[in-house]
Nucleic acid binder design. Sequence first.
DNA 1: ACCCATTCATTGGTCGGCCAAGGTAATCTG
DNA 2: CAGATTACCTTGGCCGACCAATGAATGGGT
Lengths: 169, 169
Amino acid sequence: MPGTDPVCTETTPSAARGGPVSIALARVARMHRIAAGRRLKELGLYPGQEMMMMRLWDCGPVRQSELIQSLGLDASTVTKMLQRLEQCGHVRRGPDPADRRAVLVEATDEGRSLRTGVEGVWSDLEQLSLQGLGPDDRAELARLLGLVAENLRVEAGEAGECPLPQGNR
Amino acid sequence: MPGTDPVCTETTPSAARGGPVSIALARVARMHRIAAGRRLKELGLYPGQEMMMMRLWDCGPVRQSELIQSLGLDASTVTKMLQRLEQCGHVRRGPDPADRRAVLVEATDEGRSLRTGVEGVWSDLEQLSLQGLGPDDRAELARLLGLVAENLRVEAGEAGECPLPQGNR
DNA sequence: ACCCATTCATTGGTCGGCCAAGGTAATCTG
DNA sequence: CAGATTACCTTGGCCGACCAATGAATGGGT
């Protein structure tokens, strides 16, 4: 610790020695999100909104609470995101006649028109990320990520479980 | 718009069909971050700050610009984060005598005392995430994540490259 | 019928993160 | 040595995301 220049050009902080995979995961995810953001920006979307729209494309008019559950996000996050999406014209919101405190959400035609663009972004990103990986490597990666997701699902807010494919209400 | 109940309990949005790995990656990363956040909160840190502190633990007094580069974050993000960390007493900042526009950052003793806690959180998280994975699966996951990181590094802001292990100035 | 617990959504606050602009200091030119 | 260009940081604005607290409507007990 005397007059040494610590150089410090370590790529992995020493305190993260105990979690190499976690570090790699965090880094990859951030880069992935950045790359997604760049592409989504040209569509007029912010990262995170594309998931919302995907859900709406599949669903037709949905109650906000179902969106919250299926996305695994906080209620307030969804509220604000929908307010912005509504103001941009991508989404329409209205009261639920069956439950006067609920809100029904639906993609507008303009929102639906984003679909092909988002799909393109998404598959483009997939292709970029997995460049140079053979089919077996890709499958293996998917499998391992699935296992990790299962491990984390227990304690994290469980985003996206679907135990009952039964008629909803 | 007829009386159909689309059920919609799909766990994967159909529009994301083209990027299964990307979807899994995003989900896992978010759950991972949430789990990290829960644990870091008990240490008085917010998710993201731990990386900053790790860097500072390794480095001694560093110029802010080096932090920016090694973390791969935006300059403004680092500025604000450091302002908050300074106000919490985890970090000290001062002028660089050699360059009057630069700022030197250093962890305080209080900041250094967080290290064991953060290491614990990190390894705890690693253990939770990789539960049930054998050593070879873990190595495989690390390898595949490394490949993906390399693919994304090209276009994303390259967080954490260290091309020249040479004495700096 | 009544009250109480639950659900649904919103607001306000905080943080991490980005971008765009700006100001100051160093450095590279001519 | 003057002028333009770069590097370093800060500010302000915006968005995604969390938590905590609130209000409104529903539903269940007794």
